[in-house]
């Protein structure tokens, strides 16, 4: 996808976040994963590190070499995305205590990712 389309998708998801409450932590985490991944692709494409047809879908599913390369340029952003990904089995697909707090943390991470990505616009 082009950077413009990644940005459009990320911002559509961000605009819908107001519907979610603390009781919707699964979707706060998933929204952060989806929008955060679009922002990560936006950033990597803008930096010339990945082509429009080389989108990542999950940091955990990149080849080791690719993620090493991307982290040389955007370590903090990708580590923030990793943190969101790590919440998914525990709070989205699992029933661990602390879901509302995890949902709020995911949104904070998404905000940080969005700030960094927009610096590259």
């Amino acid at each position: 996808m082009t950077p413009a389309n990644h940005r459009e998708k990320a911002e559509r998801i961000e605009r819908a976040l107001h519907v979610l409450t603390d009781a919707d932590w699964e979707m706060r985490i998933e929204a952060a994963m989806l929008a955060g991944t679009h922002w990560a692709n936006f950033a990597l494409h803008r930096l010339g590190l990945s082509a429009d047809n080389e989108d990542i879908t999950h940091t955990s599913m990149c080849t080791v070499n690719a993620i090493r390369k991307y982290k040389l340029a955007e370590q903090q952003l990708l580590e923030q995305l990793d943190e969101i990904e790590e919440m998914r089995p525990v709070y989205v697909r699992g029933d661990a205590d602390g879901g509302p707090e995890a949902g709020r943390r995911a949104l904070a991470l998404l905000r940080a990712i969005g700030v960094r990505a927009r610096e590259l616009a």
Partner: peptide, 24 residues
């Protein structure tokens, strides 16, 4: 809880979250 949320989301306006809520 997800069914309740699904009812609050507008399918086209909030498609990405509506769809992902449905999928989840």
């Amino acid at each position: 809880r997800l069914l309740e949320l699904r009812g609050r989301l507008q399918p086209l306006e909030h498609f990405e979250l509506w769809y992902w809520t449905t999928l989840t």
